[in-house]
Nucleic acid binder design. Structure first.
Length: 627
DNA sequence: GCAAGGTC
């Protein structure tokens, strides 16, 4: 018996083959430039159900095909509205990879799918079956096996090979639905908007596109911008108090925070001053141990957020650096939502790979020696059922040929990994509460007693307070050295950083770990938003603000009078995700979800065509207000 | 020339 195994990407094919073959295999390179990543690896393996088999392990590279419209529906050849129910066709993306599957399947008796264990992976499995069936009629969805694995640990992979299941037809249906809806709604609205705005935009401007992910992403940017623009400062008043003990001054903050009424604040102040002109009473002294937890195992989104914060890298640059590090074998697969390491994974062995480093080798050694500093990382709540958290594989020495950005990202991945295998940082949190007249004031201090993971995770700061609190006792009378009413005012929200935008998209389910960076990049390249340097606070940061076009688009869409749902808010995408989940669970049919969603977009499209001038007007107004 | 999702 000859079995063809197909993984979602070459790296998985290689490591699965390495495990199953026990090192005894032959590799045939796929011919052609476009196939330089695909390899066919031959070996034998003992399957309980089929006995000793010849195995060919190969891979695709993500999706094999893409959905599109036939030529007669190409841009300019039909009314955009026709795309809501135009026929669709399936096109092969990379013929070399697709043909390789067809050829290899020709000589095989069975097909076993080794794609990632997620929704898209099931669909890619179906695409592989299609390619395999072209010259081998025995290859069908029903006869194909599917290996279920969520990481590449040896025993797990062997178990997956020995206990295959079938492809999940419902998940395949769900992905089909997503693809079709994204294409129909995206192409239709994009053609309409580009046509409409072509009347007012300069020649050579980028097209005006709509996409179910790009618009909510733009919506987040505009939303923050508007909140800042609409912000009105409000003055407030507060009572500041300080007492002195043994030359030590202790500044306290009012428990009420601040009041928006000056007169009331002054009355309270004067009343207290009358009651206790010179001193206050300590009503609470407290010192408690506190911890600053070591970080969770690393996901893509966290990596992008951190690299934005610490190194001012864009999400796209971070991911692209991580991809290079991955293909060079320095770090694990960089697109993952999983924040828990599999129990069986030997993390100490990975730490050991870092001991030769001149920068962090000593720390890595200290984790492994007898002091017992190594900690099993915390377990998070997320899993994509496909990849482990991002971690270093081998040490990239100083001489490794990497760009400076790649070096930065690599160092970050290593330090983060070592940090999550480290003890928490520990400290003592102390607080003092005093009562002055009718009012209560408090001060807090921190003494860090053990740096823990912060030794290696140098990007995070957690430091002892600059001045320690004076030693006082309960009920002690302390002498006031300062009491006064001070005025302040509310501050507008801060401008949106890319790190915050990633967090918003992640929390609202806009895009995936692999695509969030692309969506942000898209709204930049469409000239909906621009990056702006500001020096808010101490450090220079880069923030995202909408252009007149971006602002006008969101405003225009909001004015259309869409009653059921907004196209610039995240809810529609989240609703689609929910419905796709229902398809996976068999609660609704693909047909129903298609019909419901398309009817919603038809309504939006009708409103847009009826109010074209309104859409353009919002853009023109945005320009006028800016002048 | 459109989308979003995989991946190199």
């Amino acid at each position: 018996m000859h079995i063809l195994c197909v993984a979602e990407k070459p790296s998985i094919a290689s490591s699965v083959a390495r495990t199953l073959s026990g090192g005894n295999s032959r590799t045939r390179q796929v011919k052609g430039k476009a196939g330089r990543f695909a390899r066919n690896i031959d070996f034998t393996f003992d399957f309980p159900e089929f006995g000793r088999c010849d195995v060919t392990m190969t891979s695709v590279a993500g999706h094999v095909t893409n959905i599109d419209f036939p030529d007669q529906y190409s841009w300019g050849h039909c009314n955009p509205e026709a795309l809501f129910d135009a026929p669709t066709i399936i096109k092969v993306g990379n013929p070399v990879i697709a043909d390789n599957i067809t050829k290899e399947a020709q000589n095989c008796d069975l097909l076993m799918i080794w794609t990632d264990c997620d929704r898209e992976g099931e669909y890619i499995g179906w695409e592989i079956v299609q390619q395999a069936s072209i010259r081998n009629r025995g290859m069908t969805l029903e006869s194909a096996y599917r290996a279920r694995f969520s990481h590449l640990e040896r025993s797990h992979v062997i178990y997956a090979a020995k206990h295959p299941v079938r492809l999940d037809k419902k998940a395949i249906e769900a992905v089909k639905t997503r693809m079709e809806l994204d294409l129909r709604t995206g192409a239709c609205l994009t053609r309409f908007l580009t046509g409409l705005f072509g009347r007012v935009l300069d020649k050579g401007s980028p097209m005006v596109s709509y996409g179910g992910c790009q618009f909510p992403t733009l919506g987040f940017v505009v939303d923050r911008y508007k909140r800042i623009k609409m912000f009105k400062k409000e003055p407030f008043w507060q009572i500041s108090l300080a007492f002195k003990k043994k030359q030590k001054q202790c500044l306290m903050t009012w428990e009420r925070g601040h009041l928006f009424d000056r007169l009331v604040t002054v009355c309270i102040y004067q009343n207290c001053l009358k009651l206790e002109p010179e001193s206050a009473t300590v009503i609470g002294v407290d010192t408690k141990p506190t911890s600053n937890w070591a970080p969770l195992p690393l996901t893509t989104v966290e990596m992008q957020k951190d690299c934005g914060r610490f190194f001012k890298l864009t999400a796209k640059d971070t991911l692209s650096a991580a991809e290079t590090l991955y293909t060079k074998g320095f770090i694990s697969y960089p697109r993952t939502e999983t924040d828990t390491f599999p129990k069986a994974m030997d993390l100490r062995k990975l730490v050991e790979k870092q001991v030769e480093s001149s920068k962090w080798g000593a720390y890595a050694r200290s984790l492994l020696d007898d002091t017992g500093n190594f900690r099993q990382p915390r377990t998070g709540k997320h899993s994509d059922e496909a990849h482990p958290p991002i971690h270093p594989i081998i040490l990239a020495g100083e001489q490794a040929s990497l760009t400076s950005v790649q070096k930065t990202v690599y160092e970050y991945v290593v330090r983060r990994f070592l940090a999550c295998c480290s003890p928490d940082a520990k400290g003592l949190k102390s607080s003092i509460r005093v009562k002055w007249g009718t009012e209560v004031f408090r001060a807090a201090g921190l003494v860090v007693t053990s740096n823990g993971y912060l030794e290696i995770f140098i990007y995070s700061k957690w430091k002892s307070s600059r001045t320690s609190l004076p030693e006082v006792e309960l009920n002690e009378r302390v002498k006031l050295c300062k009491v006064l009413v001070t005025e302040g005012s509310t501050e507008p929200p801060k401008k949106l950083t890319e790190t915050e935008l990633i967090a918003l998209m992640d929390a609202n389910g806009i895009g995936t770990d692999a695509t969030i960076a692309e969506h942000i990049d898209k709204i930049k390249s469409r000239n909906y938003v621009i990056m702006q340097k500001t020096s808010e606070g101490r450090s220079k940061t880069s923030v995202i603000v909408p252009t007149e076009l971006g602002y006008g688009l969101v405003e225009g869409f909001n004015r259309l009078g869409l009653i059921k749902i907004s196209l610039t808010k995240p809810f529609l995408r989240r609703m689609l995700e929910t419905k796709l989940k229902y398809i996976c669970e068999g609660q609704v049919s693909r047909k129903d979800v298609l019909a419901e969603t398309i009817s919603l977009y038809r309504e939006a499209y009708t409103l847009m065509t009826r109010q074209q001038s309104l859409l353009l007007q919002s853009y023109k107004e945005a320009i006028r207000t800016n002048d």
